[in-house]
Design a protein around this nucleic acid. Sequence first.
RNA 1: GCAGGAAUGGUGGAAUGGUAGACACGGGGGACUUAAAAUCCCCUGGCCGUUGAGGCUGUGUGGGUUCGAGUCCCAUUUCCUGUACCA
Length: 918
Amino acid sequence: MADYNHIDIESRWQQYWRDKEVFKTEINKDKPKYYVLDMFPYPSGAGLHVGHPLGYIASDIYSRYKRQQGFNVLHPMGYDAYGLPAEQYAIQTGQHPEKTTNDNIARYRSQLDKIGFSFDWSREVRTCDPKYYKWTQWAFMQMFNHYYDTELGKARPISELVAHLEKYGTEGHHAAETKEINFTADQWNAMSEKEQRETLMNWRIAFQGETMVNWCPELGTVLANDEVSEGLSVRGGFPVEQKLMRQWCLRVSAYAPRLLDDLNNLAWSDSLKETQRNWIGRSEGAEMRFPVKNSDIELEIFTTRADTVFGVTFMVLAPESEYVKLLTTPEQKEAVDAYLNEVKHKTERERQIDKKVTGVFTGSYAINPLSGKEIPIWVSDYVLAGYGTGAIMAVPAHDSRDYAFAKKFNLPIIPLIEGADVSEESFDAKEGIVCNSCGPDLDLNGLTVKEAIAKTKQHISEKGIGRVKVNYRLRDAIFSRQRYWGEPFPVYYKDGIAYLMDESALPLLLPEVSSYKPTADGEPPLGRAENWKTPEGYPIELCTMPGFAGSSAYYLRYMDPHNDEALVSKEADEYWRDVDLYVGGAEHATGHLIYSRFWNKFLYDLGLVVSPEPFKKLVNQGMIQGRTNFVYRIKGTNTFVSKGLADQYETTPIRVDVNIVNNDILDREAFKAWRPYFADAEFILEDGKYVCGYAVEKMSKSMFNVVNPDVIVEKYGADTLRLYEMFLGPVEQSKPWDTNGIDGVNRFLRKLWNIFSKRTDSEQSAKEKKIMHTLIKKVSQDIENFSFNTSVAAFMIAVNELGKLPSVSAKSMDEFARLIAPFAPHIAEEFWHELGHEGSVSDSEWPKWDEEALKEDTVKYPVQFNGKMRFNIEVPAGSDKAAVEKAALSDPAAEKWLEGKTPKKVIVVPGRIVNIVI
RNA sequence: GCAGGAAUGGUGGAAUGGUAGACACGGGGGACUUAAAAUCCCCUGGCCGUUGAGGCUGUGUGGGUUCGAGUCCCAUUUCCUGUACCA
């Protein structure tokens, strides 16, 4: 055989896989299914860097392994093709986002192909493809046509709710709602169609609502909560402000209890589950009504600290609360209006940065329902309109925010826990013995906080002052985007009221527009589309759907990607069911992974999918960071000093392209050619070399530390890249990319190649068999545990050991080819065919290890004295504890450590260790 | 602030409570070669010692449980990730 030539081998086998459609998957009821999914990428203009394929390589190894184990493996790939960067590029250049997107997809595809993945490309989906987004639009229509029954805990057709309203009005319905409204059947029946449709928005799962939204003026669009971080847009980092707008929303909040409970059944990492639990944010408390003095208004509040009602010294309304208007007295009106105005002009960012305590008194008083005391009602922006009821009872002694407010406005502070010192700060901990809490019909003094909460809850329910209530932090998802590059809504407006189009109108194609900017009067880009009307002339919705719309059910579409009749056929869904293994980044914890679960549960309620959860097991691959190289320029010169000598000069570190640095040694000629102003650079060397410094940073163009997988594949081959990415460390862990170590992996493949070339037809010797079966066992177990770095190490050990043998049999090489096929499929395929097999090695059977072959004649025991390792003994296999103990004590080396004493105790752990206690 | 995770050589990282540092990179030495590359062999946590001995010490820090702790428990520091006026 010739030398190992990765270019020839890899292109040949990739061609073979394409020609023979080796990875095309069909339903096969004779085989168990296994569904391995990667989070599909957004094809950005920058292309892939070496960090992106990490998860894809891991999932590819796993799916090839499962396939060799006899599973029918579904392993698809596609593109999350709608997104902001393509649209912004379109605004700048006028190029259609579809063109940009297609170009980027082509580039991604060619990069992915070079790595040798076992994707079934016949199932590719693109979210911007009308055949695909037809089903995104269709799902939206189903959500529009359903409401959520909180008692049954599932979605039901809106027609059933309408039937209830016609008969009973709102009395006794259990629909999850935007806000509580009440009317009788007669009132409902008397409503006009327009009124009825507007009212139903209160219950539909996809509904239009006036909500406070995250409005990003720079991007000209609304953003979902997970698209905003610290008051800035995640994409672009532009300021985001709060604005009241009429938007499409999805009633995700209705599913909060199920989204929370079902987490327990998932094989996800604890940290990811915890992130979702926090995001859903269940809190158990009480809802309580505080009557307003001289009025029949009652203020409803939510609290988790029912035990502190006796310490309520004032109440606070959110500025947006509708009670503000009702409770402001004429004398206070001017001050309140001024305050509201001031708050309105603050952005979310400003609100968060300056945590100045502000507020204003409404002039009204409420009555504490337990103590009967009068308490003033204030307005402040530290109370959020969107959580609970938009009003709070303030307990300054035991809540730090209320404390700050009370201090600023000189409101009384009553401590309620024995021994709590509230002269400097509030006592927030939920512990201690309650005091100062005795009213006309309730005495909490002497109880623990926990007991007091329970007793108060019971009391207020009995007295009808309030009720036990569970609140969730999870908000409804805002589903409109004022953008062009997204799915159009199958919605038109008649008399200003939204109507769904007929299903036969699907897919509703995204129209062409003359420009991708908002229109002059501030409408979304679709406002420029000509003839954006139904045949009857009704205007069509101008917003498009957000990015998560298309990515929420794509895993279902892969099961049956070409079906024109349904999102997924019953047959395909019942066979493939759910994703067995999902690999992707943890950054989707509170976005995609919530929305997808919600979407799946909705379809599950409708009986359209059989699995209540989409992703059984989930692995979060870590991020690959960049390893930036630095050169050190002596200040005021164009002379660069090597790292080891840099501290002798006053230098400025400058980032240098990692691609002109090898093992931290700078390629000086390439450096001079890199930038014109370095052309006449001079160097101060150490040992004739220029050594660069390094730091770990995010991999990005601006840091000059991007490593392109294409370059690695060309130089070393895809098999080397695959093995090396796995060898770097655990898949779940973030780590810097360092090309330096890659030679070791490449060396291993060449050694393997040489051993293969010299194989003989002789029998597999016992020694060989032992090496191979140790390897089979180790690799099999490691793959199951997703511990690919240690598998790669095991391969290296095996090759080193095989290399020491006088000869290696073809049988061992046969086993080796099958074992390494998931990791390095190209070289494995080459071996497989050299060995005379037909078909792909990915269809070969996964080898099983033989415990017999691993057995030793003797067992080695480390002998410890008082836990300190001293010497080793060897005993025949199968020796019992007494025999091992005897062998240890009678070993000549034991005498020295026993020092003539009798051991107090001897511990023998079979197969492990002997510890002698003296 | 809260929640979750992590901390092991010069570097990436191995270690079902049982000989810490597998495997690899880097470094040092040697073989082959006119030379270089490639390849192969040996050494490589620290300290003391020896120069075919050996010993001590060592997994962020301080305690604890155990015959035995990198691993379990408590406290603490630092770092990373997520989240944050959520009442």
